[in-house]
């Protein structure tokens, strides 16, 4: 009625994917669960990058975090406890056209799936890996995980955990070929979004440890970070995260950290008095298994037949034929 051609608008609407278009089933996470924030930031990324939904795959293991793919309206693979990474590698190996994301909890990644974690880092395939670290086994109801702080009483450690918590950042940064390592808290939406965005644009395996609150079992785990932002050390750099002014005002403790400096990244990861947030390390020069393993040969029947015939020639004989 205002002279607009509404067929045009309709077409535009169909092409442009909104946040809702990326929303899958209704989340069954607890109220106040940090996973909701991670989901929101990820959907925002998909929308902003306009990722084709059919070309996007979320792979997960088992646990609370692993329900993630069900809540996305993309392809998803909710696999086995600990095995998300090798499944994701398998998905990616012949399908460079797919955007592959991996969501794992701390039990999934740092306990039952440790071998895969180490080797996936080394293989450095183009995957975005999110470690939802709430320091506890939630879905199985409150057992200590490798990242549970020492002394915490859980159902399997009634006298408190005996060992110091594993530090996923130092482990990852210690693995040959680590190419993108970041840490962020899910309660800081700006930072979370920015880190996931940078991870998405990184060519190689980007590993993000996301500190994630479990309102049920480890509600206090990150409380000191929420009440006192000075416990957080924000990593800034011209080649690092883009930080809004508001965020910069809240998180005053900052360090200008060059993400190409591996030694400093390792020192930062080791800090015990402050919790670093931002990009610890980034290196796009590291070889990727998905690229390195390519033969450049287009597989088709003609090619296969040629390989087979020449193999047959090598192991073949003519019988009863005089030489």
């Amino acid at each position: 009625m205002f002279g607009l051609n509404d067929t045009c608008i309709l077409e535009q609407d169909q092409e442009y994917l909104s946040l809702e278009d990326y929303q899958g089933r209704v989340s069954r996470w607890c109220a106040g669960c940090g996973d909701n924030g991670i989901l929101g930031a990820t959907q925002r990324l998909c929308r902003d990058e306009q990722l084709p939904r059919e070309k996007t795959v979320f792979v997960s293991g088992i646990g609370c975090a692993a329900r993630f793919p069900h809540y996305m309206n993309t392809y998803g693979f909710h696999g086995l406890h600990g095995r998300a990474l090798p499944i994701a590698q398998g998905v990616k190996i012949r399908r460079p056209d797919l955007n592959v994301f991996v969501n794992m909890g701390d039990g999934d990644c740092c306990s039952i799936g440790t071998a895969h974690w180490i080797h996936a880092i080394r293989a450095n395939m183009d995957l975005v890996v999110m470690l939802h670290d709430n320091g506890i086994y939630g879905l199985t109801k409150n057992q200590a995980s490798p990242t549970t702080p020492s002394g915490l009483k859980t159902n399997t450690t009634p006298r408190g955990t005996l060992l110091r918590a594993l530090n996923p950042l130092t482990v990852t940064l210690g693995v040959t070929n680590a190419s993108f390592v970041a840490q962020v808290g899910e309660w800081i939406p700006d930072l979370l979004y920015e880190v996931i965005r940078q991870a998405y644009h990184h060519k190689g395996l980007s590993f993000i440890r996301i500190l994630q609150r479990c309102p049920h079992f480890t509600a206090e785990l990150y409380a000191s970070l929420l009440t006192n932002p000075d416990n957080i050390l924000l990593l800034t750099h011209e080649n690092g995260m883009q930080i809004s002014e508001t965020t910069a005002k809240i998180y005053k403790r900052q360090e200008t950290h060059d993400p190409t400096d591996l030694n400093r990244a390792r020192e930062i990861a080791e800090m015990s008095d402050k919790v670093p947030m931002g990009i610890l390390y980034r290196n796009e020069q590291i070889g990727r298994y998905d690229e390195l393993s390519k033969s450049g040969i287009i597989p088709n029947w003609e090619r296969r037949a040629a390989v087979l015939e020449s193999a047959f020639d090598r192991i073949g004989i003519q019988t009863n034929v005089p030489e």
């Binding site: 696999g79 499944i87 398998g90 399908r95 797919l98």
Partner: peptide, 9 residues
């Protein structure tokens, strides 16, 4: 797991 991922893809 890798084989299953590749098959799925």
């Amino acid at each position: 797991a890798f084989a299953i991922g590749a098959s799925y893809a």
